[in-house]
Structures are given as C-alpha cells and as structure tokens.
Nucleic acid binder design. Structure first.
Lengths: 143, 143
DNA sequence: ATTTAAATTTGTAATGATTACAAACAGAGA
DNA sequence: TCTCTGTTTGTAATCATTACAAATTTAAAT
C-alpha cells in the first residue's frame, strides 16, 4: 500500500469540479483516499487523520463520505459484513475482500462493461461485483 | 411474493442431507426462506416466526443462519448497507436491491459462469454480483 | 422409565457501526 | 463589525450483531 503523493491543490480542484466546497476536513478525507487507495472504513480514515487534526470528529467523516458519495466522487462498497467501505470513483473495476485480514484489493473487471440501465423493468443505478476469499499474503501465513 | 407450499418433511430431509440436525426452529427458518423466497433479514424471519413460535429468540435466528451458511445451505448477501440478507443456495443468479423499498429481486446472472478459483494470487471462495436502483413498483409510485 | 451427557435454545448484556441532533465555530458579504 | 449560512463537533440514541451463561430439549445409556 504505497502512498502516491498528491497535492492539496489537486484535491481542492477535484472537489470544486464536483461541486463540493473544499473545506480542510473534506480535502483531508479525499486526499487520504487518493493516496492510500485502501478502500477505507470510516474508522480507518478517522484513526489516520486524528493524528494530524486533533479536533476531528467522527461525525465529520460520516458527513463528508455521505456528501462525496452523493456527489459521485466516491462509491460506498457493501462488501464487508460489518462496515461500509469507500472507494474513489475511477476506471471501472471489481473488488476482492480478504475474509482473514479485511483488506480490499482492486481486481480487473471480471466481465466486460456490464452496465445495463434496466433489468426486469427495474431502474439500475449501479452494479458491483464482489469476490471474497483469502488473500495471497494471508494464505502464505497459514502454512 | 407468492408462497410455495413446502412440507416440513421436505425441509427436514434437506437439512439432514446437508448434515444439519433438523430441530423445529431450524426447520421453521429454512421453510420460511424456501416459501417466501424474499432474501430476508434476521428481523424479517423473526417477526414472521414469532407469531407461530412465541418462545422464539432472535439469537436462535442468528445461530441458525450462521450454521446454515457454514453448511452451505444458504448464502449471506452483503448487498444492503444496513443489514445482512440471506438466500437459499440454488441455481447461480444475481441480485437487484431496490434502494427505495429494500426488496431484493433475483435476476438472471449478468455474466456467464464467472467463478474463478484464483485472482491475482488470491483464493476466491465466492463472487457476488449486486445491482442496485429503484424497482419498477417504486418507480410507478413516484409519478 | 431414569439418569446423564451433549446439543440447542433462550434472554440479557455488551459491542460496534451509524444516525440524530443541537451547540459551537468559521467564512463570506453587507 | 454584524449577520447569515454552511460546516464541524460532541453527545446521545438507534440498530444490527455478538458474547455468554442459564435453561431447556434431545438422544443415549443404563
């Protein structure tokens, strides 16, 4: 999980382009996601940012993620049994969740551009493909 | 959501075939799922069965679903943001969740038998394809 | 049938993620 | 500076799920 350095300015522009007023907290949350690329939970974000923003509230993370989700900057992943995870919206791809360590990995889309707008008369807004199992690193440790 | 009548005996045999001791509560839970085909939450099952089994405990539903899941009789669906839903394991198919009413519909598999055993070195145990949007019935009501 | 052991069910308390809500705060304009 | 609006914060409430131990049921053995 290497960190890609990303400037505040870049994140700020990104938020403005999506119609989100770029507050310090919002920039921090999105910057974290863009750099870590780790499909974080609310708590992963909170635990990391609280070291830099001592006054940060968990509620702000919830508010921010809900807003960014509504503005289609990030997607919420219903892949874990216990908590929502979030992902910056970029090229289409699928996800693999390790049931052992909880890490989520990007994987190539398992099927070609499957984005029907309608199924059986229902309006389709999104389709997510979730694989689950044991990641290579955890399998190695199990020997 | 029409109820297919299913005999106790049928459910009992099904459980035994999967190595699950067919207690009254377990039969009741699985019979409910087979008849309703509604991908229920714990609470949906509980609210229905409590009318027939006044002593029923929610914990029993949790225990039963966990056991049936382990024995591969049912699958747990991470599709709702708020609660786990469960589905009897039969022919491969995908799911559509209505974000308005919360109903889950079976849909034809969006892609052909996509069950890789390995992706990027990770062991894959299961793949779920989840569509979300607004169901036809809810859309009609929104006019 | 009685006794015993094991498995199942039940009820209550704890945990943990998320939401509700109102007070505190910050920034933009007049 | 004052005011208005939007943002952030902290606390309390809610809700799904799990932990756990007591009570009950079942099956086996005598």
């Amino acid at each position: 999980m290497k960190n890609s350095p990303i400037s505040i300015e870049t994140v700020k522009n990104l938020l403005e382009a999506k119609g989100v007023k770029p507050s310090f907290q919002r920039i921090s949350v999105l910057k974290y996601m863009l750099q870590k690329k780790n499909h974080p939970s609310v708590d992963m974000i909170y635990q990391n940012l609280i070291t830099q923003i001592p006054t940060l509230s968990r509620t702000t993370i919830y508010n921010t993620l809900k807003l960014l989700n509504k503005k289609r900057v990030i997607a919420s992943l219903s892949i874990s049994d216990t908590e929502l995870r979030y992902d910056y919206i970029s090229d289409p791809h699928d996800h693999f969740l390790c049931k052992q360590c909880g890490q989520i990995f990007d994987i190539d889309a398992l099927t070609e551009a499957m984005e029907p707008k309608e199924i059986n008369g229902h309006d389709v807004h999104e389709v997510q493909v979730n694989a689950k199992g044991i990641c290579s690193s955890c399998r190695a440790k199990m020997n």
